[in-house]
Design a protein around this nucleic acid. Structure first.
Lengths: 147, 147
DNA sequence: ATTGGCGTAACTGTTGACATTACAACAAAA
DNA sequence: TTTTGTTGTAATGTCAACAGTTACGCCAAT
């Protein structure tokens, strides 16, 4: 089990948008070249980010940009946009516990809060970081001027 | 994306083992009936738990039991036994970032620590709970005597 | 030797991720 | 207004994981 690479790609996309926005027009093909995947992949993820209200896309002439300040886009926002959990739950659950068994009939009561705690821990950590942190580290490691 | 239901099944299995161990012989078929899945599913998970050293299985005559005290089996132990992450990583990563792009060539440096933090938050929460907590809540919700 | 139960291989069906091709829709510029 | 570059999306293919089932071998106690 693994989180889809759409998540790492989406963050990479934001890093590109911010880092190159002064010097280049940020198109899907431009980003695809940096990420190293087919442009259609980028377009699909772009659509997901747009549906979540995280980016603005101008059709025709082209161009993708963040629709909010980097400090106001958390990694949880990005995660939920591109990698939605089935029914909002991180953990799947066996569907037919035996209702005639004392354990089987109470297993949800026993487990649900524990699974919820783990999911919340993950979401808490994701929401503690923002695109601004990503940009800061991009500048830190790459240098502020394009090479 | 979701964690496989092997995890919820595995915890259900431990709850059964402990709750019924005084009154019944705990076989794969017995557990399968409580969980509500095919016995082979239980046998497969049993094998994973055995390989991880979490349960003892006696072949032939049958019988499955926890190999350690419930307090010493964390939910992280169970998770790692039945739902191993590819290469130990919760997040997958796009494989071919452009090494000629300043962002693409540094994206791992920028992202890896952030993904690691999220994974550690999840693992920390998983390891803070044990099978003993599950047993305690089983007794709490079901009642200490079999119905 | 029989029997109950675990171990596992083999097969099926379903789903999702990832990738690619192709083309329609669109907006700005020539 | 036609051209051009770009986004939007449908259709298709490949692959892997999950879940389920059947079948049968192996084991140990009775």
């Amino acid at each position: 089990m693994q989180v889809s690479n759409r998540f790492s790609i989406a963050i990479h996309m934001f890093a590109c948008m911010e880092y190159f926005k002064k010097d280049y027009k940020i198109t899907g093909d431009f980003i695809a070249s940096s990420v190293g995947v087919n442009p259609v992949i980028i377009r699909k993820i772009t659509s997901q980010l747009r549906d979540a209200g995280l980016v603005n896309v101008t059709r025709g002439t082209g161009g993708i940009s963040a629709s909010r300040a980097p400090e106001e886009i958390t990694l949880l926002d990005v995660f939920n946009a591109v990698d939605s959990l089935d029914e909002g739950r991180l953990f799947s659950f066996h569907e037919n516990p035996n209702s005639n068994c004392p354990v089987g009939s109470h297993i949800h009561l026993i487990l649900d809060d524990k699974l919820e705690r783990v999911q919340q821990a993950m979401e808490r950590e994701l929401s503690s970081m923002t695109i601004a942190d990503v940009i800061r580290d991009t500048d830190k490691y790459v240098g502020k001027t394009a090479e």
